[in-house]
Design a binder for these strands. Structure first.
Lengths: 114, 114
DNA sequence: GCATCCCTGACATCTGCGTGTTAGGGTGGG
DNA sequence: CCCACCCTAACACGCAGATGTCAGGGATGC
């Protein structure tokens, strides 16, 4: 129940070249035979098909999915981004401007040094 | 307490061109004067500085941050990616192979049509 | 044992991003 | 009223991503 790279390519619609590229991005990693041949099982094939559909339906690129993977593998990067986005674009009500700015600067400083 | 684009550029280390680009990505959006001049307040200046630091310390590109923004603005894209990553790379134990694959295919189908 | 597949690595192309620069036309403070 | 600044739009260009293709060297199956 495992396909070799060319077979996997024809049944998933990817090119063999792209299958190697997708693997290199860490998105779909087939097992290897004793001789080093890539072997794609049903799970990998399904992942490849849904990945293709995902790219098309949401207008996303492989690199973007790769970045999403990075976000899952580097939590500190994810939280850094969370914190940056969470920084309110306008000063919250009830806080004097100067105080608030000082607070934000201090916050960002600590976040970056973490 | 608001700076014009060239002033903002010199105090943040970005070039004016890049400030317009960052704005175009939706990452830091200054207010506008009556005549259309960009006006950067303390909050925006701070965001610009921390953004720069974020890029450098985490080896991220502006496009990546833009993609992270997309993830926040398009929750369906975020969940689609969540679901794709969550798909187990190997069949769970105790489930017959055929059943599991059919289940996964059905799941992905529904996810994509959502 | 020979045709056919696989592997890795490298070069070629096309496209898009990041960034600068320039042109043509308003704005604004002294 | 001028000069320095701002705006948008466009072209330029180097670099990286996405993808094909080819070369040299194994594996495999009939």
């Amino acid at each position: 129940m495992t396909l070799t790279i060319n077979e996997a390519a024809t049944t998933t619609g990817w090119s063999p070249r792209m299958l190697r590229y997708v693997e290199q991005l860490g998105l779909v990693e087939p097992t290897r035979s004793a001789a080093g041949y890539r072997l794609y099982g049903p799970a990998q094939l399904q992942r490849l098909r849904t990945l293709k559909a995902l790219l098309e339906t949401h207008d996303v690129e492989l690199g973007d999915v790769g970045f999403a993977l990075r976000l899952r593998q580097e939590p500190e990067l994810a939280t850094a981004l969370d914190d940056w986005f969470e920084t309110t674009p306008a000063a919250p009500v009830g806080v004097p401007e100067g105080d608030w700015l000082a607070f934000e600067q201090d916050k960002q400083q600590h976040l970056l040094n973490r």
